[in-house]
């Protein structure tokens, strides 16, 4: 009897780990293919059939090349792009989180008239395709005479701010009313309640939305391309990658593009690893509210 239960447990456990393995492979394999491609020369990329590791076309021996990585790092634009992307994406995230969480607190926990319209209007801001609003936005930016970085940060609000506001609103709303009421009984102002009690409670939500906005800003291409066009020193990574060219016009340096995208993904992975702790810490915070 007990043995049966145990085998059942083992089967369950194995199935679970198999599932995890499957997710792991599914999520990572295309990225592995990018790494694989980034280690191949043009001739190796053209080989048929494609090889799972870089191999010499003649001898079929394992022979990766780091040529793509070297030329990516030699390209001054790329390193500068990393710096620019970091500045722009970080500022965008902080601004969107700060401003968005105020709005979300107001929309999620305070009573006032015109709440529904406010929610819809904020969402409506992000409902147009980027290409459509680009011309108008470019005109505004020109009028204001903003620097390229600032224009990117501001224009990214168009898609990050409604997102943070909405997600945080839904999380604030989820928090039990009693917390606010008991804080108010203790003599705390609504804003103090927000800052000292609600904000820490929604830490996992803050980290999550922050991360998602950061990546969205980090990956944005069309606005960045346009706003940095006459200020090349402000170009972000996606733009810099798009500016990668082959030796000759029309040649697409696929290996280098893959190398660059691998390099670019690393900082984000590190960032996630760092925030992991915050996300897990949020777990314990979640227990408080019950």
């Amino acid at each position: 009897m007990r043995g049966k239960k145990k085998t059942g447990y083992i089967i369950k456990k194995t199935a679970f780990y198999l599932l995890i393995c499957f997710i792991f492979v599914y999520m990572l394999f295309p990225f592995y293919w990018a790494v694989n491609s980034s280690l191949k020369s043009e001739a190796q990329l053209q080989m048929t059939p494609a090889t799972f590791v870089p191999r010499d076309p003649e001898t079929k021996a394992f022979s990766p090349t780091f040529k793509n990585y070297i030329s990516v790092f030699k390209d001054g634009q790329f390193i500068r792009g990393l710096v620019n992307s970091t500045i722009v994406a970080t500022s965008t995230t902080i601004l969107a989180l700060a401003v968005g969480s105020f709005a979300a607190f107001s929309l999620g926990k305070l009573r006032f008239r015109g709440k529904k319209p406010a929610l819809y209007v904020i969402l409506a801001m992000t409902m147009f395709p980027q290409v459509t609003v680009l011309a108008g936005l470019y005109a505004v930016i020109n009028k204001l005479g903003l620097s390229a970085r600032l224009s990117m940060i501001l224009s990214y609000m168009l898609f990050t701010l409604p997102f943070t506001t909405w997600v945080l609103t839904s999380f604030f709303k989820d928090l039990p009313v009693e917390i606010m009421e008991s804080a108010q009984v203790d003599g705390a102002t609504p804003f103090q309640t927000f800052r000292m009690i609600l904000l820490p409670l929604t830490a996992p939500a803050l980290v999550t939305t922050g991360l998602l906005s950061f990546i969205a800003a980090w990956n944005e291409y069309l606005f960045a391309l346009t706003f940095t066009s006459i200020e090349p020193t402000a170009r972000t990574v996606p733009v810099a990658i798009q500016y990668f060219t082959g030796v000759i016009a029309r040649q697409e340096p696929l290996g280098e593009i893959m190398a660059a995208s691998v390099i670019v993904t690393v900082p984000i992975v590190v960032l996630v690893l760092i925030f992991q702790k915050r996300i897990i810490a949020g777990l314990t915070a979640g227990a408080v509210k019950g």
Partner: peptide, 29 residues
């Protein structure tokens, strides 16, 4: 008390903004 925190909030907001502008003008420098 609440007013104070509101002012603080606005200050933070303005500060972040000036920080960006300063950061950017530095770069143009």
């Amino acid at each position: 008390m609440r007013k104070k925190s509101l002012i603080a909030l606005m200050l933070v907001f303005v500060l972040t903004f000036t920080l960006f502008t300063v950061g950017c003008s530095n770069n143009t420098g």
